[in-house]
Structures are given as C-alpha cells and as structure tokens.
Amino acid sequence: MSYTEVRAPKATATNVNADHVRGLRWWKEIGWRHVVGVVMIIICVVPLLYVLSASLVPGGTLTGSNQLFRSFDLSNYTNLGDRGFWSWARNSLIVCTVTAIGTVLMGAAAAYAFSRFRFRGRRGTLTGLLLAQMFPQTLAFVAIFLLLLTIGEVFPALGLNSLLGLICVYLGGALGVNTFLMYGFFNTVPRELDEAAKIDGATHAQIFWTIILRLVTPILAVVGLLSFVSSFGDFLIAKVVIQRPEQYTVAVGLYSLAADERTAPWGLFAAGAVVAAIPVILLFMFLQRYIVGGLTSGSVKG
C-alpha cells in the first residue's frame, strides 16, 4: 500500500469537515437572513392575495373567502360604479394630487428660506414647528371641525363638506414635518452655488427654481410620495370634514360600504381596495428612480 493511498481517506474527511464548517458559518452569517426574508415576504403577500381572492368572489363574505382563488368573477369590479366608487376615487385623486404638489412647493419654499436666509425669529420659528409636530393632528379633531364650521359661514368653499377645506387641513398638518425634512436636505447643497449664481446676476427666485430644486429632486419626490400616500389612505380627518356621500374619498366611501359588518358586501369592498392600491403603486414605480438615486441624481460635476 502506497503513502498516497493511506493519506487519501484522511484528506477526504478533512474536506468534508471544512465544507461542514463553511456551511455552518454561511447559515450563521447569511443563511438566517434569507429565512427571515422569506418569512416576511409570506407575511406581506398572503393578506394581499387574500384581498385579491375575495374581490373575485361575487357576493362573498370574509369567512367564505378562506379558500384562495376558488372562483374567478369580475362582477365585483364592474359593480363598483353602482356604489359611487369612481366618484370617490376622483375626489381622492384630486385631494391627494393637490395636497402633494402644495406640500412640496410650500415645504421647499419654507426650507429654502430657513436654510439660506438669516432673519430675526428664525430659530424660534423652527423650534415652534418642531414642537407643533410633537402632537398628532388627530388631537385637533374638535378644533378642526369648529374652525371649518365657522369659516364655512363666511367662505362656504373652505368649510365643512368641501374638498378644498380638506386640502387646506392636510397642507397645514404636513407643512411642519416636511419643512424640517427638506431643511436638512437643503443644508447639504453648497452655498457656493448660490454665490456663483448671484455673481452671474441671478435672483433668489431664479436660484431657487432653476438650481436648488433640481439638486434636491430626490427629497421632493420622497415628500410628494409620502404626502400623497398619507392623504390617500387617511380616514379620520376626511370623515370629520366630509359628510356628504357624493364628496366622499376612497377611504370614507369604502368604510360606508362596510359599516354594517353583518350585511356588508365584502367582495365589493375588496375590489375597491384592490383598485385603490393601483395609483399608489404606479406613483411609487414612477418616482422610484428619484428615491433610490438619492443625492447622486442631483450631483454637481466639474
């Protein structure tokens, strides 16, 4: 028996041992993350599949929709118009689009002023905005209701049962936190750019619209997306302000469908929830390149 023949079994055992150690190390460092990821995906996807399956069951109930995709019927989607869903969707899109655009413009203007100008009361105003955001807007239900009720007696377009009034409430509630979010981002833009533009004869408005906003596009996209999603899914404030069925938003309208859980058309409710998720998904996909890009999308080359 040669020396090579004697040593071969030991070498094989050593290789198996090394592979076993590498496998354990992979599970300790990386493998468990895959397990957690798969579990979280299941937790997130199963409720979505359940709602989608329930929307395809005509006249279905919550307990009768436990078997996923046991039928495929689009009658719930075709019947949404009979309940006024498309009117609710139109109202929600109007409110959320105007709110998102207004939030971005107002927050950007305020953040630019706090970041670039030095004026009396600047620090106190920033502190006041921070303190105001410590209290959620839901604590002001009674004040919002009474305020809009009083304003409606003078300007009905800004009172209760007014989409414009609801937009103003959303804008006021989102201004503080978004101003702080943009303020920190604006501070990362070098002031030398402003000084160079001023030397070339640019005004503050030209600097703001043509230079600064292009460099802070990622944060504008994030603020716009968050504002749209939060106002689109809001129920409490919209329920307080809007009380007429023809002016309901999607959240309030879907709640009216499921107000009585014993006779609620859960198939219609699920179909409305599926359709209501489409605008948010499309908006996120459209803005994803700005959100992921971060500051690199507005980097300065030179």
Rank of each mutant, 00 (worst) to 15 (best):
Y3A: 15
T4P: 03
T4V: 14
E5H: 09
A13H: 07
N15R: 14
D19Q: 11
L24K: 15
E29Q: 11
I30H: 11
H34Q: 08
V36D: 07
V39A: 15
I41R: 01
C44A: 15
L49E: 06
V51A: 11
V51Q: 04
S53H: 07
A54D: 02
G59M: 07
T63K: 14
F69I: 08
L74V: 14
Y77A: 04
T78S: 14
G81F: 09
R83Y: 13
W86R: 05
W88T: 00
N91W: 04
N91Y: 05
C96G: 04
C96S: 15
C96L: 08
V98D: 02
V98C: 09
V98G: 02
I101M: 14
I101Y: 08
L105T: 10
L105C: 12
A113G: 13
R116A: 11
R116H: 09
F119N: 02
R120M: 09
R120N: 06
T125R: 04
T127F: 15
T127R: 10
T127I: 14
M134A: 11
Q137Y: 11
A140C: 08
V142G: 04
F145H: 09
L146G: 03
L147R: 06
L148W: 04
P156R: 15
P156W: 15
L158Q: 03
L160C: 10
S162I: 05
L163M: 13
G165Q: 03
I167W: 02
V169R: 00
A174M: 11
V177Q: 07
Y183E: 11
G184W: 04
N187Q: 14
T188F: 01
D200C: 10
T203Q: 08
H204R: 15
Q206N: 08
T210V: 06
P218T: 03
G224K: 00
F228D: 00
S230P: 01
G233L: 07
G233I: 07
D234W: 01
F235Y: 15
I237D: 01
I237H: 01
I242M: 13
Q247E: 13
Y248Q: 13
T249V: 13
V250G: 02
G253F: 00
L254M: 15
E261S: 12
T263G: 06
G267K: 01
L268E: 04
L268S: 02
F269E: 00
G272I: 02
A273Y: 06
V274N: 04
V275Y: 04
A277N: 10
I278G: 03
I281S: 05
L283R: 00
F284C: 09
L287V: 01
S297V: 15
G298E: 02
V300G: 06
V300R: 12
K301I: 05
